[in-house]
Simulated scan of single mutants.
Amino acid sequence: MFAVAACTALASFSALAAGNVLRVSAIPDEAPTELQRKFKPLGDYLSQETGMKVVFTPVSDYAAVVESLATGKLDLAWLGGFTYVQAKLRTNGTAKPIVQRAEDAVFTSRFVTADPSIQSLQDLKGKTFAFGAPSSTSGSLMPRYFLQQAGINPEQDFKNVAYSGAHDATVAFVAAGKADAGVLNSSVWDKLVETGKVDPDKVHVFASTPEYYDYNWTVRGDLDPELTKKLTEAFLKLDPANPEHKAIMDLQRASKFIPTEPQNYEGIEAAAKSAGLLK
């Protein structure tokens, strides 16, 4: 039976370390209640496929997910590309990405504003700007990298730089006038528009990044290989032609899941080093 633990304390993981329990978490790139809602049907499915009790525990920051994978308090985690790179380095290369959505192989970020005078990246100079979380691939690292490629240094060229903490929060910042512009991932932007949580006539996209690899599901390096295989196969056999599977995939905003590998994230690691975020 699927269980969702609402407690955010990482200490709760240790109590679940023994027994037939699959311990799962995700980077907090959206509100904890939204992450739980999106995960529940997937958790039910993974429980059926593995025969294990699945416990999802949201955490307060990105670093907590990385540290919990490294210390064996998590078995499986939903990571952004940069967070995976951090987990790889923290675990001496043992953390293993197993699958990603097809969409994650061609991911983009969207620059948004409510200011009609901002029509290009160059128009951001002298403006206030909001990134997401500092460790977010699509809300911070890759947009920053592409801004630099366009000759823009955020700390020098923007009037002020803020970090909202999450993609949906960035849109709220821009809509409320707390920032002249901001950036978030394309998947969350599309969802906010579809659900009516943002009015694209008021807050609109004025630029997008080139494509890059992003999110994946990663297992801790010493997870039982048979369990890793079961989890990988479970994701790969999700079929949108199956109504139950489609409901799971719609919440994950996935057309299908595909295998992934560490080499896919070498570009992100290079971008992080270029930005001075990794030694």
Rank of each mutant, 00 (worst) to 15 (best):
S25Y: 05
A64W: 09
D29H: 13
D224P: 06
R253E: 14
G81C: 07
A271M: 12
A105S: 14
K279P: 15
F206I: 00
Y215N: 15
A169W: 09
A175I: 03
D222L: 03
A179V: 00
G196Q: 06
F158N: 02
A114I: 06
N185C: 05
L74C: 07
P154R: 04
R253P: 07
T33Q: 15
L69W: 05
I118S: 00
V54G: 06
S117D: 08
A169N: 11
S120R: 11
A181P: 01
L147G: 03
S60F: 09
D157K: 02
D168I: 10
K273E: 08
A87W: 06
L10Y: 08
F107C: 13
N216H: 11
Q122Y: 07
V55Q: 12
D222M: 13
F235W: 03
L16R: 09
V171L: 02
K229M: 10
V205E: 07
A130E: 02
G43W: 03
D250R: 01
A130W: 04
G126H: 04
A63E: 11
Y265W: 04
L121S: 07
V174N: 06
F131K: 01
F107Y: 15
N153Q: 12
E155A: 13
Q36S: 12
V174T: 01
F39V: 01
L238A: 09
L278W: 08
S135C: 09
V161Y: 07
Y213C: 10
K40W: 13
H245N: 13
D61R: 14
V161R: 05
N185M: 10
P262V: 15
F13Y: 15
M1N: 10
D75C: 03
N160P: 00
M52A: 11
D123C: 04
R23T: 00
R253S: 15
T260W: 07
K229Y: 09
V112R: 03
V198H: 00
F129A: 00
P97N: 03
D214L: 02
P154Y: 01
A247T: 10
A271V: 11
L46N: 08
P134M: 07
A11K: 10
S14T: 14
